[in-house]
Amino acid sequence: MSQGLRRLAPQLVTLAAVVALVSAFFPGFLAVEIADGRLVGSAVDVLKRGAPVALLAVGMTLVIATRGIDLSVGAVMAICGAASAWAVSNGLGLGAALALGLGAGLLCGLWNGVLVALFGIQPIVATLILMVAGRGVAQMITEGRILTFSHEGLAFFGAGDVVGVPTPILIWIVTGVAVGLLVRRTALGLLIEAIGINRPASALAGVNARVLLIAVYVASGLCAAIAGIVVAADIRGADANNAGLWLELDAILAVVIGGTSLLGGRFSVAASILGALVIQTIDTGILLAGFPSEFNLVIKAGLVVIILVLQSPRLGPGLPGFGLRAPRAAGVARTEKATE
């Protein structure tokens, strides 16, 4: 357990620092009260609004651990949200809506996984296809408009609450814990890391890299589907043009802040979720601080740069709490390879 905490220390410190910074501009940031039997407060908003990126980051972590990337998740969100909204607005009921949404995500993930694992297309190219085409698919489902619905059962996933806690928060916690347990209580995590670090060696050791690769893209597609349903449920409508727009980049950023290398290998789902919360805290903080909207992106970019520089292995060791990532052993291997 202490080992796990040590892995998460840089992200926890970063989150604490960002929260402190936002609190300086907006003193009531951490205040939580109960109104109408539900938790209300900026911190609650962060946890709730952070749900889509946190969910995407869970799947993205697994994909990046295999040395891949999934650019399609934003578009997949739009597709799955549209599929669920279409189902309820055609009177198919909640079960069918969820099944359609998740099924669409599964198919999208399968498509990506097959392109990467069986056809050997580079992940960035393979997923770019769906990133571009996916919004078109979503627009076909919504027929180009915002497909609104008033189905309370589906809306519950975005705007409802369970004993005062907004549903999206519970959804990402449950998803994160489930995936975290799945990869660490089984051998999936080890095998995913192995193919991410050295796929030829893993394949020679009998690791079924193809199946694992397809599985991580399917997982990413499912996470995107859940995120898409949450977003559609939140506004009671599927907005094919805007749902999940550019969120793939936030998800990748969350994974990077979470300390998982884009070169694959060691990963931590929990750290990626913390990364997502860091990003959402910045986003919400900017809104609360009341700066003119022209500054939003500049402030966000500035903070992200500072965080990444502080976490970089080169600068890290000098600062307490940061740079705890072990130097990559692969670097050593690469030097030695030159001996031939």
Partner: peptide, 9 residues
């Protein structure tokens, strides 16, 4: 190095 060990593990 390339086909045997998985360096970071």
């Amino acid at each position: 190095k390339t086909d045997g060990i998985v360096a970071d593990l």
